[in-house]
Amino acid sequence: TTTLTYTDEEEARKAAEELKRRGITFTYTKRGGTWEIRIK
């Protein structure tokens, strides 16, 4: 499992869109002031 952490929502959203485009499965979690993208 790879976890990407972002403090900028815009960056996190761009990363999530890129992963979706590649067909990669991930979970997206907001934790306080950070956003976590966990790639399975």
Rank of each mutant, 00 (worst) to 15 (best):
A12V: 03
T25W: 12
K20A: 13
T1G: 13
G33M: 12
E17P: 00
R38M: 13
E9Y: 08
T29A: 09
K40H: 15
E17L: 11
D8C: 06
T3H: 05
R38I: 15
T5Q: 08
K14M: 10
T34Y: 15
Y28F: 15
E11M: 10
T29Y: 10
K14H: 09
F26Y: 07
E11D: 09
Y28I: 15
I24A: 04
T25G: 08
R21Y: 05
A16T: 05
T2L: 15
L19H: 01
T27E: 11
Y6A: 01
F26R: 00
I39P: 02
E9M: 05
Y28E: 03
I24N: 02
E11T: 11
I24S: 02
L4G: 02
E9H: 05
G32L: 07
T5Y: 15
G32M: 06
G33F: 11
T25C: 10
R38C: 11
Y6I: 02
T3L: 14
I39V: 07
T1D: 14
F26L: 02
R38W: 08
I37P: 00
E36Q: 07
T2V: 14
E18G: 06
K14P: 01
L19N: 01
K30W: 08
E36F: 12
T1P: 10
E11H: 07
T29R: 10
T25M: 12
A12Q: 01
R22S: 06
G23N: 06
R21T: 06
G33K: 11
E17V: 09
T29H: 11
E9T: 02
W35D: 00
T1W: 15
R13H: 07
R22A: 10
D8A: 06
Y6R: 01
R21H: 06
Y6E: 00
E9C: 05
R22D: 04
K20E: 11
G23Y: 02
G32V: 05
A16W: 04
R21A: 11
K40Y: 15
W35E: 00
R31H: 11
I37R: 00
R38L: 12
T27D: 07
R31G: 05
Y28S: 04
T1A: 12
D8Q: 07
T3I: 15
T34H: 13
E18R: 08
R13S: 06
D8E: 07
E9P: 07
R38A: 12
E18S: 09
T27R: 04
F26T: 01
E10D: 12
R22Y: 06
K14V: 07
E17N: 10
I24G: 02
K30T: 06
T27Y: 06
A16N: 02
K14N: 10
K20N: 09
L19I: 02
R31Y: 10
Y6N: 00
L4V: 06
E11G: 05
K30G: 05
L4K: 04
G32Y: 05
R13K: 14
L4S: 03
A12P: 00
W35N: 01
G23K: 04
L4Y: 14
A12E: 00
K20W: 11
K14R: 12
E11P: 03
T1M: 13
T29I: 13
A15Q: 07
G33V: 09
T5C: 07
G32E: 12
K40D: 14
F26Q: 00
R21S: 09
T1S: 12
K14D: 06
D8P: 01
L4N: 03
E9F: 07
A15S: 06
A16E: 02
F26P: 01
K30A: 10
W35S: 01
T29V: 12
A12I: 02
R13C: 08
E18A: 10
E36M: 08
T29Q: 10
I37Y: 01
I39R: 02
E36L: 11
T27A: 05
L19E: 00
G23V: 01
T1H: 12
I24M: 05
T2E: 08
A16Y: 06
R21G: 05
T2A: 10
E18M: 09
D8V: 11
R13W: 09
I24T: 03
T3M: 10
K40P: 14
G32N: 14
E11C: 07
E36T: 09
T2R: 12
I39E: 01
L19G: 00
I39L: 07
G32W: 04
R13F: 07
Y6P: 00
R22T: 04
I39K: 01
L19W: 02
T27V: 09
T2S: 08
T5A: 05
Y6D: 00
K30Y: 14
T25S: 14
E18K: 05
D8F: 05
Y28L: 15
T25H: 13
T34R: 12
R21Q: 09
I39C: 03
T29P: 00
W35T: 03
T34E: 08
T29K: 08
T3G: 02
D8S: 14
E9D: 03
L4C: 13
G23I: 01
T5H: 09
T1N: 11
K14Q: 11
D8Y: 05
T7F: 13
A16M: 15
D8T: 13
E11R: 06
I39S: 02
K20I: 13
R21I: 08
T3E: 03
T1Y: 15
R38K: 13
I37T: 00
Y28P: 01
D8W: 03
K30L: 05
T2W: 14
T1K: 08
L19V: 01
R38S: 13
T5I: 15
W35I: 13
R13A: 07
K20R: 14
G33C: 08
E9W: 08
K40R: 12
A15T: 09
G32K: 07
R22V: 05
T34M: 14
Y28G: 02
I24F: 10
E9V: 05
T25R: 13
D8I: 10
T7M: 09
K20S: 12
Y28M: 15
A12D: 00
R22M: 12
R38Y: 09
E36Y: 14
R31Q: 11
T1Q: 12
G33R: 08
T25E: 15
Y6Q: 00
R21N: 09
E18Y: 12
R38F: 09
L19M: 04
I37F: 03
I24D: 02
E10S: 13
A15R: 04
R22Q: 13
A16Q: 04
K40I: 15
L4I: 10
L19K: 00
I39Y: 11
A12F: 15
E10F: 12
Y28H: 03
A16L: 10
T27N: 04
R38N: 10
T5M: 10
F26E: 00
T5D: 02
T3A: 04
R31P: 02
A12K: 01
A16I: 15
D8M: 06
G32P: 04
E10N: 14
W35C: 03
A15I: 09
E10A: 13
G23Q: 03
K40W: 15
R21P: 00
K14I: 08
A16G: 05
T7I: 08
T7R: 07
K40A: 14
E9I: 05
I37G: 00
T5F: 14
L19Y: 04
T25Y: 11
R38P: 00
R22W: 06
I24V: 11
E10M: 13
T2F: 13
K20M: 13
F26C: 02
A15H: 06
T3D: 03
I39M: 04
E9S: 04
E17G: 07
T27M: 05
E36N: 03
E36S: 04
A12S: 05
L19T: 01
E36A: 03
T1R: 06
K40V: 15
T3Y: 10
T27S: 09
I39W: 04
R21E: 07
W35P: 01
I39N: 01
T3N: 04
E17D: 11
E18P: 01
K14F: 07
T7P: 04
G23H: 04
G23F: 03
L4H: 06
T5S: 08
E11V: 06
T29G: 06
L4Q: 04
I37M: 02
I39A: 02
A15V: 14
I39H: 03
G32T: 04
L4W: 14
F26K: 00
G32I: 05
T29W: 07
T34V: 15
D8N: 14
D8R: 09
L4M: 10
T5P: 02
T34K: 13
T29L: 11
T29M: 11
T5L: 13
T27W: 07
T34L: 15
A12Y: 11
K14E: 09
E10Y: 12
R22E: 05
I24Y: 10
